[in-house]
Write a protein that binds this DNA or RNA. Structure first.
Length: 293
DNA sequence: AAGCTAGACAACCGCAGCAAA
DNA sequence: GTTTGCTGCGGTTGTCTAGCT
């Protein structure tokens, strides 16, 4: 315990007095500076005494949360990147709601942020599909549709950055190579995500820079683009993909072009602005879920 | 312009695990 | 062995804001 903390330790107020003074709600700039200043001098930890000694009318828990989720210098702000989305999906499929454990593998991201991402984005889709987020169907959808598409998006982002970059090099492993650049440690217990899990091939020319992967790319796309870019026909058997998708989603003879052309009123009701699946995808998925129920 | 709604994010709460007294 | 306090985690709620009507 540092000097200041030791000095103020005897000045512990009764819990009643403390409760009366405790402040709740949003943190002010002044409070933030107090917390930052104190931690810069004395380090973090011992949150209850820290709260008292820093003259913050907050609980130790509140101080800890504010520091870890917001003020910590290495906290990474901004949108969740495609790579991070992919990693979250992969790790959540493995560990479930172990947010802190998942967060350990996303440098700069907090468990709170990942949890919020999951609740606002991922669970929303389960709700729209009228299925349980923990159901096998939804998990299959993530693994066989969503995650491969994220890989595709990542590749597309890398490829587009290639066009904009003059000094490019040829590689056949841009996804895996860049993935390891972003997440350099094989800290997934020997089961690190790599492109082969999703049966995505890549022989494109790319700079494969980690910066290119940090680029935000919209997930809004035409599902048919996805298939055509992979030489996938809804009704045929793509040697690369059908085995992975194991017929769960591709053997029902759904014709996307027909769907697009037939002014299906149901499509109009779907949130097509969402950045993960578009209307066609939701219609498709909805059909599958209804089929399986 | 005002009201409403949904999404995104920040913060709080309850609980469990752990260590020290 | 029991109690007490601290820390961390996951679930939940509150608040702000942008977009829509």
């Amino acid at each position: 315990m540092d000097v200041k903390a030791r000095e103020c330790a005897p000045n512990v107020q009764s819990s009643e007095e403390e409760d009366m003074e405790l402040k709740r709600g949003s943190w002010t700039v002044e409070e933030d500076f107090k917390l930052i200043d104190y931690i810069a001098t004395h380090g973090e930890g011992r949150w209850n005494s820290l709260a008292r000694c820093a003259d913050l009318k907050r609980t130790g828990k509140s101080c800890r949360l504010r520091w870890l989720n917001y003020l910590r210098p290495d906290v990474r702000r901004g949108n969740i990147t495609l790579e991070e989305q992919l990693l979250i999906l992969e790790l959540h499929s493995r560990w479930g709601n172990r947010w802190s454990k998942i967060a350990q593998h996303l440098p700069g991201r907090t468990d709170n942020e990942i949890k919020n991402y999951w609740r606002t984005r991922v669970q929303k889709h389960a709700k729209q599909l009228k299925c349980d987020v923990n159901s096998k169907q939804f998990k299959d959808t993530m693994r066989y549709l969503w995650m491969p598409r994220l890989v595709e998006r990542i590749q597309a982002a890398a490829a587009s950055s290639t066009v904009a970059t003059t000094a490019s090099t040829t590689t056949s492993t841009s996804v895996v190579g860049s993935w390891k650049t972003v997440f350099p440690d094989d800290h997934l217990g020997g089961t690190q995500v790599n492109s082969s899990n999703y049966t995505v091939e890549n022989s494109s020319t790319t700079t494969a820079s980690s910066d290119s992967f940090a680029t935000q790319a919209s997930l809004v796309s035409d599902f048919s683009d996805y298939y055509s870019s992979n030489n996938i026909s809804i009704n045929n058997s793509n040697p690369n993909c059908v085995e992975e998708f194991s017929g769960n989603f591709y053997n029902y003879g759904i014709d996307f072009q027909s769907l697009e052309q037939s002014n299906n009123p149901w499509l109009d009701t779907i949130d097509a602005s969402d950045n993960l699946f578009n209307a066609e995808e939701f219609y498709f998925l909805q059909q599958q879920f209804n089929f399986n129920m």
